[in-house]
């Protein structure tokens, strides 16, 4: 009987098994993390908008409070995207000729809403309520990131469910005093662990219920 395989087949066969294992492992790695990579979750990606609105300019530069535009954030599930009228409150007077603002003026003229593209778009089976988070001491910044430093709006977090649950399982990590909710430069104190616990107790946050399915999926 002649040899069927050359001598090199010995290492080649073992190497190919190893390679196959590695390939499978790496495919698994990709599958496990595909939803966590920025390309899929769009973290740090500025979506193109009809007007290149700069939160950085308006918040840090002008000192305009979040609630000036997002007026319903404290009282309803939806934070509110400002109507064109809000823009025109100032821009009917300043930067009136700026070409960049032409869509705003056109919207005002034609009484047609500006079609913003949603940056923080949760799946439709998720029920998210801004007001409860705001009133229980979760800062804007905790979810939306340093919006006051964003020339163009982008997601700061994946908004994956694991990210939501990270807080819902232990809100004491992120809770802050109510009057600091809109403070974009809030720094967590060194004793956040104890302070957070006392705030959770003070604000009567029912941690045992926060991970119920129906809290978010209704």
């Amino acid at each position: 009987m002649a040899q069927v395989f050359p001598r090199s087949a010995n290492w080649a066969s073992k190497a190919s098994i190893l390679a196959a294992l590695l390939i499978v492992a790496s495919i698994l790695g990709v599958v496990l993390n595909i939803n966590r990579i920025d390309y899929v979750s769009m973290v740090g990606v500025a979506i193109d908008q009809p007007v290149h609105f700069s939160h950085k300019h308006h918040v840090t530069g002008m000192g305009i409070d979040c609630r000036y535009c997002h007026t319903t954030v404290e009282v309803s599930a939806f934070a509110g995207v400002p109507p064109t009228e809000t823009c025109m409150t100032c821009h009917s007077q300043i930067w009136t000729e700026a070409p960049i603002l032409e869509p705003v003026r056109a919207s005002f003229r034609d009484n047609k809403a500006i079609e913003w593209n949603r940056v923080h778009d949760l799946p439709d089976f998720v029920y998210f309520n801004h007001s409860i988070h705001v009133s229980q001491g979760i800062g804007c910044q905790s979810c939306h990131g340093q919006v006051d430093q964003m020339p163009l709006m982008m997601k700061a977090h994946t908004l994956n469910m694991e990210w939501c649950l990270d807080c819902h399982r232990d809100p004491a990590q992120f809770i802050r005093p109510r009057d600091q909710v809109f403070n974009m430069n809030y720094e967590y104190p060194a004793n956040q662990e104890t302070l957070g616990k006392s705030l959770v107790a003070d604000y009567d946050v029912q941690t045992s219920q926060l991970t119920n399915c129906s809290i978010c999926h209704r």
Partner: peptide
């Protein structure tokens, strides 16, 4: 295993 090549296979009757 796997060890597709082995000297014993060189013997004609080893099949």
């Amino acid at each position: 295993l796997p060890q597709p090549y082995h000297p014993v296979f060189n013997v004609e009757s080893f099949a």
